[in-house]
């Protein structure tokens, strides 16, 4: 390298280390060859400790098969591979840069694997570039929550103007994800009119529809703005109670049951059953729903 090229190169190295983007170069087996300032600050490993070590040893919890596949694909295809936080929240576990007021413990990351070729054109190393995407992720989550709510507005049950079954499932999924992210409780209260079929046979579907309409109107007065009501089936009502644990939900369920019991047209003699279900945050709503239905019957 000529002297002037070297002179240009030095500031470039300074920038490489100061830039707020993670840059590391890895051998194909995962051995670290370069580790910039961002990587040091966020991982806690200074460059002298990281270089020469295996990335898999530095980050034992890394998804190794996935990571190895990314490196292999980058080499074979000879094109960059992009990984967004939406796909997987992070490639390497770094703590959120706002450890106190942040929404998550970890730093959301976008990442790019770049193939690096030697003089002969063979890919012998891979650069991994990591961007902090925590802010983007937070903004998107807020937007998506709002958007989903809007999208779901149109699908209401005709009688009660509560959410219809499809809408109920969708909202439940959104809320489940939100509960998972924010680590807040989420409870679903189910109400089943167990003798609805008999009533419909005796008084007709129109009478039942009118009754549900009245009940819904009465129930609406006692709702918090955050309570989401749905009619999962012709003889069922449900409430999605966000930020509400099972204990608090009992109070809600009792109130609903009371409203229904004390409603004037209860000449029908409705029989009501209720059930509370804390939504497990580690399972998809679609999976537990049929089981819950089973429990009803």
């Amino acid at each position: 390298m000529s002297e002037s090229a070297l002179a240009d190169f030095h500031p470039l190295l300074d920038v490489l280390h100061a830039i707020d983007v993670g840059i590391t170069i890895l051998e194909l087996d995962g051995t670290v060859k370069l580790w910039n300032g961002f990587m040091s600050h966020n991982s806690g490993f200074p460059a002298e400790d990281a270089i020469g070590k295996s990335i898999y040893d530095l980050f034992p919890k890394i998804d190794k098969p996935w990571f190895e596949r990314k490196i292999k694909q980058t080499c074979v295809l000879k094109i960059q591979a992009f990984v967004t936080w939406e796909q997987r929240p992070y490639v390497l576990f770094f703590r959120n840069k706002r450890p106190i007021t942040g929404q998550t413990e970890f730093m959301y990351q976008n990442a790019t694997f770049i193939p690096l070729s030697d003089i002969r054109g063979d890919i012998t190393q891979v650069a991994l570039v990591i961007y902090d995407a925590t802010q983007a992720a937070a903004a998107r989550h807020e937007l998506e929550d709002a958007k989903s709510q809007l999208e779901l507005m149109g699908t209401l049950d005709n009688d009660t103007l509560f959410h219809d079954p499809a809408s109920f499932q969708d909202i439940l999924e959104v809320e489940r994800q939100r509960a998972q992210r924010s680590d807040l409780p989420l409870t679903v209260a189910h109400f089943k009119f167990t003798n609805a079929q008999e009533i419909i046979e005796e008084h007709g579907t129109d009478a039942w529809a009118a009754y549900m309409q009245d009940i819904a109107t009465a129930l609406k007065q006692g709702l918090r703005t955050t309570d989401i009501m749905a009619r999962p089936d012709v003889d069922e009502l449900a409430a999605i109670l966000v930020s509400t644990d099972k204990e608090k939900s009992k109070v809600f369920a009792q109130r609903v049951a009371g409203t229904i019991k004390n409603y004037p047209t209860t000449s029908f003699g409705v029989q009501l059953k209720a059930k509370l279900h804390s939504v497990p945050t580690d399972q998809s709503a679609y999976e537990w729903w049929p089981t819950l239905h089973e429990q009803w019957r």
């Binding site: 295809l77 094109i79 591979a81 992009f82 990984v83 796909q87």
Partner: peptide
């Protein structure tokens, strides 16, 4: 994303 990487990138 994998499909996009390959098809768009290449």
């Amino acid at each position: 994303m994998d499909t996009a990487n390959v098809l768009i990138g290449a």
